[in-house]
Design a protein around this nucleic acid. Structure first.
Lengths: 112, 112
DNA sequence: AATCGTTATATTTGGTAGGGTATAACGAAA
DNA sequence: TTTCGTTATACCCTACCAAATATAACGATT
């Protein structure tokens, strides 16, 4: 008893990562803040890292996940597309299902 | 189309890792070779890393996973206990089941 | 007691992923 | 045309982790 089973899942498209937990966190933060730089701050990661993550997400997705605007009112910003929002939702669902599935499987170890 | 879902699972006991894919590979190699140093060579990892992995496995397991002998015929060696063998088997099973489960879940992303 | 190939461990060396910093480009609004 | 806070990108630099190296300890066999 006392064992825990943990997991990391991610989705790839031809050797680029589309979505993982970090990327999903970032997308949620973008949705909350309306900008990539604010999202980076709220997650305590550098803007550079956040930008690299978001860039790779948008490059490997079939449709745009965010719309980024440079300049203009407030300097610009980033917001999720409907596709982006649905991706987050689907990923979270899969992740939760996976946890539940694995928790049940763990008994195979504990009963040894 | 074209998306792949990948996963890493591991089992912890009070914040130490008991088993993960790397550790399972190592245990299998120990089983095949009869020694930790040979196992490390066959996996192209340093002996040190292999030793650290094995040490942490044995420290976090309830019962010994390997029996290591120093000195003696052939200098010593390491071999899996029955408990160790059953751990490997259970982990592999869980992992395979997880892959199958996730592959089926992936449709949630692909149909978006 | 000498040999051997291990396990076990400390110390040093090196490669690289990531952070820090700087700056260009941008466009709406005043 | 100036200001502003963004997005976007290049460059250096360092902190960390992993690898390499060295060496002690060990015990069956001869």
């Amino acid at each position: 008893m006392g064992y825990k089973i943990k997991s990391r899942i991610w989705i790839e498209s031809e050797n680029n990562v589309l979505l993982g937990e970090g990327r999903v966190h970032l997308l949620k933060a973008i949705n909350d803040t309306g900008s990539l730089s604010k999202a980076a701050k709220s997650l305590n990661i550098s803007y550079k890292k956040a930008w690299q993550l978001l860039d790779s997400v948008n490059k490997s997705a079939k449709k745009p996940v965010t719309i980024n605007s440079i300049g203009g009112k407030g300097g610009g910003g980033a917001e999720l597309t409907e596709y982006g929002k649905s991706l987050i939702k689907a990923f979270d669902e899969i992740n939760k299902n996976c946890w539940a599935f694995l928790d049940e499987q763990l008994s195979k170890i504990e009963q040894l």
